[in-house]
Design a protein around this nucleic acid. Structure first.
Length: 754
DNA sequence: GAGTTTGAAACT
DNA sequence: CAGTTTCAAACTC
């Protein structure tokens, strides 16, 4: 374009015939170039209109312009031309692209260069990298766009400058580079990483057959996120703080899903990534690259716009739509951090993201309101992916109910986003150990704080922002998911290192909203937390498992009439209520939206989700049938004695002590009864799979009580790894993983043989 | 917001 | 394993 550098860059590309330049595609590409914005008012306008307040600032950086453009020369050519925000809706595809894509691209690509290159170095870089790229570009127009995204590999210059940045995700830093914060580099890096992860996820999904729409939404979400951050920064809030946290949380979330970090970093951006980028451009283009459906462009643009709009409207995330993704982020972050602490940042075990299809995803339809769609999609993806890594509680929540989950997600989303804005100093130096500093240093973890910090953000839809007030708290916690999402404690003496602490029990770090005193449940005290967890898990491997198990999906929605259809969810140990009638949140069953079961020792149970007596009846019936069947089988094998049946029944009907706990309360779903009654543990495992839904099974398997009760030395019973293993497996892996790792269970149960 | 109630968690 | 104590959330006023 105007700048010499660009000319250079473009020139190499020129192997393309002049005709090519004349071609619509070429024009389109040219129009795409956003880097110019600084110079071109139009772009600025566009950004502003789009609410990319900070974008202009981005372009202020000379480096960004020159460097970024070099690679994107093709696209950004005539960026100046497309300045109209309205261009989105204009028939002209190129214009459409301009506003949105520009922002995106810059954030992605430009940042990289900006960081990698100093003004002086830029020239060298250009010469080196461009030729090859251009060549490829020439070959494939579509690729050209993608190319602009700039694979790490190709960006040789970056490597020289800063290997880490370069490999990691240089490009993302554009925005931050604009800000000129060295600290931001880190954040940008993470952002980039996040983006890549997302893309990688998308790739996977794509491979799986996921439609591009989701990808777009994700990407748009990402974009949105960025924009939000930027905007915030422009608003006067501390940009630094914002970015890091946001980035961190995203990265964390993604991390679970995707381990791909390494891969992505190590390797150049593969075609798929580029492809996605290309999608962006394509979509905005309207030219419609091959892969995309006609809808793609429109949707993309809409999404982007929506996002932008959303950001504008609610920097702090006012809309539920905004909340969604953020919330999920926040949740995951918090949990992930925790998890990470335990595992010491092990690579996500659960790339099983694929396997964990969250119900939410299903909800992600293009048909949804775009705003929601965007958020939702992102949230879905993240949530799904994150599930594995999340504390069991969270997992339970996720699975609990779609509606709930969505609420939760929204909730968190808001929180997270607002957090982003609020996050003050996110990480950068993790050396600080003082509790007060903890929140800051936690970097990624700090986000946790951030995410939930904003009362308003956190507040469930329809709930006042004031968290502190008991009323609000109550309202918030109305829904289990919500309560967890915004979980905050008020511990005074437990240091938040005991199960008394809801945060700790839920596998979450305490965050700002918490009113706890002398809190050690912070990322900074990771070691302590982990150690404590180990201790607790050693006593009760499933101490951190969700208290309520079973498919809450089936359970009536909160607030719905529950009596008619008892939920399948059951408290893992049952409650012991004496005065609350299991009608108040004192009752863990009730609180978790679970009906009371035979495991409960409650008195005067009136649990609307299912009373104990009812459960007992059904349980007995169920058990009887099972027992008889088994009995027949066992008898044939000579294993079962006449006594067994009665004993089992008695145990079921009125389990005593921990033994009771061993039974899952869920008759229809779980076959634990059979386990107890059955002399052979192995059978249990076999039986379980048959009956239950996976979740139910997993949950049942994961129940600590079960372990304890079945084993002679309940306390001794510990997971393979001194208790932590099992628990951790459940902790990090999610239900399915837990289920797999359960094998030890049978062994434990075996002692019960009579 | 303070105080009470409640039941889980922790302890003995 | 049972009883007691501790604890913090839930709840009430």
């Amino acid at each position: 374009m105007d700048t010499p550098l660009k000319n250079q860059t473009t020139t190499p590309t020129t192997p393309l015939p002049s005709k090519y330049e004349d071609s619509p595609v070429f024009n389109y590409i040219s129009n795409l170039s956003p880097i110019e914005p600084v110079k071109s008012r139009g772009n600025d306008h566009t950004f502003n209109s789009l609410t990319f307040a900070s974008l202009p600032s981005i372009f202020t950086s000379p480096q960004n312009v020159s460097l970024g453009e070099t690679r994107f020369s093709l696209r950004r050519h005539h960026s100046s031309e497309a300045s109209n925000p309205e261009s989105f809706q204009t028939p002209n595809p190129s214009d459409k692209l301009e506003s949105v894509p520009v922002a995106v691209e810059q954030s992605y690509f430009g940042s990289k260069q900006s960081e990698c290159f100093t003004p002086g170095s830029s020239g060298t870089e250009v010469t080196n990298a461009i030729p090859t790229e251009n060549l490829e570009l020439a070959i494939e127009l579509s690729n050209t766009l993608k190319y602009s995204s700039g694979s790490p590999d190709r960006n040789v210059p970056c490597d020289a400058t800063d290997t880490v940045l370069e490999t990691a995700a240089t490009p993302a830093s554009l925005v931050q580079s604009v800000v000129h914060h060295s600290e931001e580099r880190h954040s940008s890096f993470e952002r980039e990483t996040d983006l890549r992860r997302i893309r990688g996820m998308e790739r996977e999904k794509e491979a799986a057959g996921v439609d591009w729409t989701r990808l777009i939404s994700d990407a748009s979400d990402l974009l949105n996120f960025d924009s939000t951050t930027i905007e915030e920064g422009s608003d006067g809030e501390d940009p630094k703080t914002v970015d890091p946290g946001a980035i961190c949380f995203i990265s964390n979330i993604l991390q679970d899903n995707h381990d791909g970090m390494e891969v992505m970093e190590s390797g150049p951006i593969d075609s798929s990534e580029q492809y996605e980028l290309g999608k962006f451009s394509n979509q905005s283009e309207g030219i419609g690259d091959l892969k995309e459906t006609d809808e793609a462009p429109a949707i993309l643009s809409r999404n982007l716009l929506d996002k932008l709009n959303v950001d504008d409207k609610c920097p702090k995330c006012i809309h539920s739509s905004c909340k969604h993704s953020s919330q999920s982020y926040a949740i995951s972050r918090r949990c992930l951090d925790f998890e990470r602490a335990e595992t010491h940042k092990r690579k996500s075990i659960c790339d099983t993201s694929g396997s964990y299809s969250v119900p939410l995803q299903s909800n992600c339809e293009v048909t949804l309101v775009e705003k929601k769609l965007i958020r939702t999609t992102a949230g879905c993806d993240y949530s799904s992916s994150r599930l594995p890594g999340i504390g069991l509680h969270l997992n339970a929540l996720a699975t609990t109910s779609e509606s709930n989950s969505s609420k939760v997600v929204n909730h968190e989303t808001q929180a997270s986003e607002s957090q982003v804005t609020e996050t003050p100093n996110s990480k950068i130096s993790s050396t600080c150990l003082t509790p007060s500093e903890v929140s800051r240093d936690e970097s990624c973890k700090s986000e946790v704080h951030i995410a939930e910090t904003p009362p308003e953000a956190c507040a469930p839809v329809g709930v006042e922002s004031d968290h502190s007030s008991p009323e609000n708290k109550r309202l918030k916690s109305k829904h289990v998911g919500e309560s967890l999402a915004c979980k905050r404690c008020n511990c005074k003496r437990s240091k938040c290192l005991k199960l008394y602490c809801d945060c700790f029990a839920a596998g979450l770090y305490c965050i700002e909203p918490c009113s706890c005193q002398e809190c050690f449940n912070k990322p900074i005290y990771e070691n302590i937390v982990v150690e404590t967890r180990r201790l607790i898990e050693s006593r009760n491997p499933l101490a951190f498992a969700p208290k309520v198990i079973g498919s809450i999906n089936a359970a009536p929605q909160f607030g719905e009439e529950t009596n008619s259809t008892p939920t399948s969810a059951r408290h893992k140990r049952g409650c012991n209520c004496r005065k609350s009638g299991c009608l108040k949140k004192y009752c863990e069953c009730f609180q978790g939206g679970a009906g009371c079961s035979i495991l409960c020792r409650c008195i005067g149970c009136k649990n609307t989700f299912g009373r104990k007596d009812e459960a007992e009846e059904s349980e007995i019936e169920e058990h009887k049938s099972r027992v008889w069947k088994k009995d027949a089988t066992d008898v044939s094998l000579g294993r079962v004695k006449d006594q067994d049946l009665p004993m089992t029944l008695s145990g079921i009907c009125r389990p005593s002590g921990q033994l009771t706990a061993s039974f899952s309360g869920k008759p229809k779903i779980f076959s634990l009864h059979s386990v107890l009654s059955s002399p052979q543990p192995e059978k249990h495992l076999q039986v379980i799979p048959e009956e239950g839904t996976l979740e139910a099974l997993d949950n049942s398997c994961s129940q600590p009580s079960g372990v304890k009760s079945t084993s002679p030395n309940s306390k001794r019973v510990s997971p393979p790894h001194g208790g932590s293993e099992f628990g951790s497996a459940a902790w990090r892996g999610g239900r399915k993983l837990v289920l797999r790792s359960i094998p030890p269970f049978p062994t434990l149960a075996s002692p019960r043989k009579h």
